[in-house]
Design a protein around this nucleic acid. Sequence first.
RNA 1: UGAGGGUUGGUCUAGUGGCAAGACGACGGGUUCUGGCCCCGUUAACCCAGGUUCGAAUCCUGGACCCUCAGCCA
Length: 573
Amino acid sequence: MNTGNREKTEGNGRPEGEKSHFIRQIIEADIASGKYSGRVVTRFPPEPNGYLHIGHAKSICLNFGLARQYRGRCHLRFDDTNPMKENVEYVDSIKEDVRWLGFDWDDHEYFASDYFDRLYEYALELIRSGNAYVDSLSPDQIREYRGTLSEPGKESPYRNRSVEESLELFEKMRQGEFAEGECVLRAKIDMSSPNIVMRDPTLYRIRRMSHHRTVDKWCIYPMYDFAHCLSDSMEGITHSLCTLEFENNRELYDWILAKLDVYHPQQIEFARLNLSNTVLSKRRLIHLVEGGYVDGWDDPRMPTISGFRRRGYTPASIRDFCERIGVARRDSMVDLALLEHCVREDLNKNAMRVMGVLRPLKVVIENYPEDETETLTAINNPEDQSMGTRDVPFSRVIYIERGDFMEDPPKKFFRLAPGREVRLRYAYFIRCTDVIRDESGGIVELRCTYDPETRGGDAPDGRKVKSTLHWVAASHAVQGTVRLYDHLFTVENPAEKKDAMAFLNQESLEVLTGCMLEPELEHAAAGQRYQFERLGYFYADHKDSAPGRPVFNRIVTLRDTWAKIQKTQKKIS
RNA sequence: UGAGGGUUGGUCUAGUGGCAAGACGACGGGUUCUGGCCCCGUUAACCCAGGUUCGAAUCCUGGACCCUCAGCCA
């Protein structure tokens, strides 16, 4: 009997942690009614014209997750109907991102461009049945004829061309006998429809441009509205999930499939993800990269999947996040703190603990023997005893965090101060006896004494200390680079600002060199994640880190109560 | 202004005529060799106005506000 978590249910037949939402309800109703004879087939249909971001992750988790949950399948389909914008390099990055997130499309990998022949046949059929015509109006004229939100449009003078003439013209379009913009194929629907999408929408346009897959076979390309519904239909998709901005297009989706009398999936719209303190529109993301505000698409500050991967986020934490935010139809702004919570929760359970001093302050333990080094035992993960222990060297000169010492400590500062005793984690109690300064008065070194009786971290006399510090023995320290990342923007919703870039966080990246790390980290494998105790979770950067020369990205800080106290103290004073 | 959607604590999401629930956050406390984790507690919401009903977040009517659409983009 499997009593694993995934098998537990809450009485609705749904595994725990997968909450009810309107799309699941629709699917369950469809399964119950036998609407698609119980099949569930979804698809993730990216346009290969850019990198995937966390908003796409929501859609990926939804589509692939639903297929997994209801034992259906999910297709990966590249919506490559516009050769002006699309490129193979994006196809590869998209596949890599979907796989990294933990999803598999088996052999269900499709390209809208693979359907160009059949799509062309469907277009012919629409012309023959009097439901489409070739229009010779210019792009500007088409816009004028379309009308406005409150006024109906006018019919094109070419609208009532004979079927034969349209057929002939469409064939000539395909043959390349027209220049771009000279004519288009339009659906013949209703120029006075209150839904502007239905005012004779363009189905095919001319693009004298080579396509990343069909190369020069075509010079006419189908529009999204035409290609998408028919691709869904041909693949036997049952539930075609898309974002709210396609709501107005659903009427056209249904119209095309009805006129062609083909298998008819249902389009269901949900709200796209908005995440606080960042931007998710393709335009703004491109601006960040091309304007040099970040270091590329996979800059760890970017909300792209590759950015999160580079930062050190785990796929599981992103999947968990996508499940927790839910699926609904209202516009929303999810707090970045939720994503951070998800990755902390994952890493708390799974990441090995180590000690690393980011801003070192030298400490000499005056009563500790000059040339001695001893080995102490540290626990690798208190949340998972099976991860075992490791040896940590200790000697007379160590480094502690500069922020862990204050000469004139405020009320709630529990750490080291002159005359005060603290614990060095897994080592000894030390007491600060002296502060050494340089000419300009800066603190360069601390003198301390240790209590040999406290080896391992406990005092036999039962006395307590208020605080435990992390530390690294100078004699064995490994030097490394650590990059501290913070929110990309200082405001919750930069996209609503007229000048979003003015709200870029100037401190979103701080590079620290000369960090002192425990020897364990000298050969930290690239791609490894650690908790630096008391600081946060860190990732050995898979591009820049090398054996003996580690480079870490801070994934997220630990929750920091002291930082909060400092913040409120600053506000008061 | 035409059409299509939407509105539940600070944030996200449940609730589909019968005690407004959960998560995140914030705040307070306990515990602790991580000011972490964990545990306990507090805070805090049905857009408004009418109506139907024994009873309305839910149904009806009216209103307010927000989002989407006038690409030969997706």
